[in-house]
């Protein structure tokens, strides 16, 4: 059996299921599910979610360059702010503690290196 057979089977299944799904929705939509989805789309603030995605992308892109501790210290309060927290100082303290503890546990106890970045030589 060549490497093409299985992907073809799965792709065909996806197409068939997709078509069935369209037919089901057009012919006899499940009203409970439909109401649920409409309600979700109405109440959801997609901008907030997009902001978190943007923060994640920034975090991932600077992670290795500026190092785990600094990146995490900035990232956690920023996400908390988007999620509605207005106590910046508390969030910063939590972020520093969490970042330092996670960094130490991973590098010292578990022997998994995390990027040191700008903290190179300073980090615990």
């Amino acid at each position: 059996m060549g490497p093409r057979v299985f992907p073809v089977i799965i792709s065909c299944s996806l197409i068939v299921i997709g078509v069935l799904f369209v037919i089901e929705t057009l012919r006899r939509a499940d009203e409970a599910v439909e109401d649920h989805v409409v309600e979700e789309l109405r109440t959801a603030d997609h901008k907030q979610a997009a902001l978190v995605v943007a923060l994640l992308l920034v975090y991932a892109s600077v992670f290795e360059r500026i190092g785990y501790i600094v990146a995490t210290t900035a990232f956690l309060p920023a996400v908390a702010y988007v999620l509605g927290s207005r106590r910046l100082l508390r969030d910063l303290v939590v972020a520093v503690v969490l970042a330092v503890v996670a960094f130490s546990v991973f590098t010292e106890l578990l022997n998994i290196d995390l990027p040191e970045g700008v903290m190179e030589g300073v980090a615990p």
């Binding site: 994640l56 991932a60 992670f63 990232f75 999620l83 509605g84 927290s85 995390l114």
Partner: peptide
């Protein structure tokens, strides 16, 4: 634990 703090910590651990 306040929700904003909890979920931002979840994200930190997810990335880790």
């Amino acid at each position: 634990i306040p929700k904003p703090l909890l979920y931002s910590a979840i994200l930190v651990f997810a990335c880790l």
